[in-house]
Amino acid sequence: MHWLSLAALALVAPSYALIRFPCAQLVIDRLDPLVTPGMIPSPHLHQIVGGNSFNASMDMEKDLPGESTCTTCQFSEDFSNYWTAVLYFKARNGTYKRVPQMANSGFNGVNGGMTIYYMQDGLYNFQQRSKVTAFQPGFRMFIGDDKARTAEDIARFRQLTYTCLKTIDTRDPQFLDFPKEPCPMGIMTALRFPTCWDGKNLDSPDHMAHMAYPESGSFETGGPCPASHPVRMGQLFYEVNWDTRQFNNKADWPEDGSQPFVWSFGDSTGYGNHADYVFGWQDDALQRVLDSPCYVNCPTLKTQGTARMNACTMKNVVPDDLNGWVTELPGGWVAGM
């Protein structure tokens, strides 16, 4: 897959509406209001960014922008919540340590978190002229399968990938499973959500059935949406940079030479990569920006500085040890489950 460098994107930035922005870390906690609403603790650990109204339940009827008092995202009208599982390193002696996140290219000073994209067309299309519909209040969705352990298990999902970062700007090659060798600048996970909506349901029992991929081709190639899901939405896309540099000494890796990273739910293959989304943009802010040509610094949106993004945090509800070496993953998981 071809990627433009971030420098090249910046040079053509005025000509298209590709929205790319950082969200600092809000909290790392065992809560999951989408898959296991109300459960404290949830089965495995998540890293969450966005509005500080995030909680174990998150009723669809509530107004998330009205409930939140701050957001970790650069655009201060975005009180959505975005989250993924947490990456761990398993040492040769069997103990685990959480892998911290780091800021993406162009966002120095942001406290971990992730980079969020909303696109009208593919990432490599300079023009971004297609009309797309913004997500609506109450909308939520999920992508991936935490039980997947083979490439066949995730064949129905498109573009859930890993990149071994040679530099902070590396984007290729991309893989479906964990890198097999130490990565000089860390590991990036990329998660692209489906882009065709049924036009009726803001959610579904599996949090996926109300969305679909294009009937043929892809979002990037302008593939048509299926008749069952006729509404073309913007492409929501996460990038998460995991700072694995402190774990690059192969003397600490498994004696058999296998890769040492594991998701917080025990997956050491990488195929269980998944992500959650709960819409929380204020008023018509998202549609407004999707209808306007901009990149990163969008004049149609209110922007807050890095200090305010980093200052929006929440206390953990579940008292897991998130910084030390532990003998098992939070929730009792072990690698290989």
Rank of each mutant, 00 (worst) to 15 (best):
E67Q: 03
F142P: 11
S57F: 15
E152I: 04
T69M: 08
F89R: 00
T72C: 10
D145F: 03
T84S: 08
V86L: 09
Y124H: 12
S68K: 11
R140L: 05
I154T: 02
F126M: 15
S57I: 14
K62C: 10
F126H: 15
V49E: 06
Y82S: 08
K131T: 13
F75T: 08
F139L: 04
F89Q: 02
P137V: 09
A148L: 02
M60K: 10
R129E: 12
T69W: 07
Q128M: 09
F126P: 13
S68C: 09
D78P: 10
L123V: 13
Y124I: 14
Y88W: 11
Q127D: 13
F75C: 05
G50L: 04
W83D: 03
D59W: 05
F135W: 14
F126Y: 15
N93V: 04
D153V: 01
G109V: 02
D146R: 14
C73N: 07
G122F: 03
G106N: 07
T84I: 03
T72L: 09
N108K: 15
E61F: 14
G144S: 11
G106H: 06
N55Q: 11
T150W: 00
Y96K: 06
Y82W: 08
N93G: 05
R92K: 14
F135V: 07
I154F: 01
R92P: 02
V110H: 02
Q128G: 05
T72R: 08
Q127A: 14
L64K: 04
R129K: 15
M141N: 13
S105Y: 14
